[in-house]
């Protein structure tokens, strides 16, 4: 395996990690107005993700930084090409991040309600748009011979991409509902499980539809990279298993399964792409690949050493922080947010 492939895998892992981790805190944020019937419950909901959301978001920042370092042309084409959707995501993340810290620092109900809606919107918009963006990556977008995106904003909102957005939106909400049921007790746990039961059938439906559509709308069956084989089916199966555990009220297993469904879905996208990183709909030869978009070998080697040393350390302490906060929260617990 060459370094270009290694970095493709590492970046894929970073994005997948981001979807699995930030996915549930997006979901919890979206559920906030629906399950948080009063202020005490809303605080409880926010505090379940309190210690984690920021660390989860760093997976995205690191993915962005790694893309910049390892595949500058991918970073340049993607971020300038998807300018407006990315900008909307950034505004959403800005409001959301500030809202967590600000909302409980003032008693005024209108102040709190404003930031609660910021958490909702700041979670829902990226949850939808990340699905749209990644579906477009494999669907193909107009990229010219100079690696510049030539389409507009509306190009990105094609039906297939919107279906992908719906998958990520519903998937993250379900993932968040299961997480909430895992982190709370009593009445809140029950309402989270109820929400999960209601969300599960439509999530299965859109994911299944998406997997089928993928074979029609992309060149997954005839392209030169890796056939994802059973992995897309695996994501549907994992989601079916999640349903079983939700209905039998085993939140831990249900969470593992929604996480697995996200891993498989996102892995499918990267497998279908490989060795390309962005598909050109103008001419396949204009596509960006892990070779024509990459940094020099010296840079990749340097980055590999850094990653090899520090990624395990990061995983260890981030995992440890989840261990410290493993207990379920109740409304009586002391809360920061």
């Amino acid at each position: 395996m060459d370094l270009n492939t290694l970095w493709f895998i590492l970046i894929a892992v970073l994005y997948i990690g981001f979807f699995v981790l930030e996915g549930f805190d997006f979901g919890v944020g979206i559920l906030l107005p629906f399950l948080g019937k009063d202020d005490a419950r809303r605080r409880l909901i926010i505090n379940t993700i309190g210690p984690h959301w920021d660390g989860n978001e760093v997976w995205l920042i690191t993915a962005g930084g790694a893309t910049f370092a390892a595949f500058p042309h991918w970073y340049a084409t993607l971020f300038s090409g998807f300018y407006l959707p990315l900008f909307i995501i950034l505004i959403a993340l800005i409001f959301r991040g500030v809202a967590f810290e600000f909302r409980s620092k003032d008693e005024n109900p209108r102040w709190r309600s404003f930031w609660d809606w910021a958490i909702f919107g700041g979670s829902a918009v990226p949850a939808l748009l990340f699905g749209v963006a990644f579906t477009n990556l494999m669907h193909g977008v107009p990229i010219d011979a100079n690696m510049n995106y030539t389409g507009g904003f509306w190009n990105l909102l094609n039906p297939f991409a919107l279906l992908g957005g719906l998958v990520s939106l519903l998937g993250f909400i379900l993932h968040g509902a299961v997480f909430l049921s895992l982190k709370t007790e009593g009445e809140m746990m029950n309402s989270a499980l109820r929400a999960a039961r209601r969300l599960w059938p439509p999530t299965v439906a859109v994911l299944a539809a998406f997997v089928v559509a993928m074979y029609f709308f992309t060149d997954v069956l005839k392209q030169l990279g890796i056939n994802p084989g059973p992995i897309p089916i695996g994501s549907v199966l994992a989601l079916l298993a999640a349903g079983y555990f939700i209905y039998s009220r085993r939140s831990g297993w249900a969470f593992a399964m929604t996480a697995l469904a996200i891993v498989f879905s996102a892995a499918t996208i990267f497998l279908v792409l490989f060795p390309r990183v962005m598909v050109s709909s103008i001419d396949p030869s204009f596509s960006l690949t892990i070779y024509n978009a990459a940094s020099g070998q010296y840079t990749l080697r340097t980055m590999s050493i850094v990653a090899l040393v520090f990624v395990p350390v990061v995983l260890a302490y981030q995992g440890w922080s989840y261990w410290i906060f493993r207990k379920r929260l109740s409304e009586k617990a002391e809360m920061h947010y």
């Binding site: 978001e57 302490y317 922080s321």
Partner: peptide, 23 residues
């Protein structure tokens, strides 16, 4: 400059942002 400029940015995220946010 991505070949050069991206490297410290990526390292910053890996070494600093994870540390700051988690702790």
């Amino acid at each position: 400059v991505g070949d050069i400029f991206g490297v410290p940015l990526a390292i910053e995220a890996l070494l600093a942002f994870f540390l700051e946010s988690t702790f």
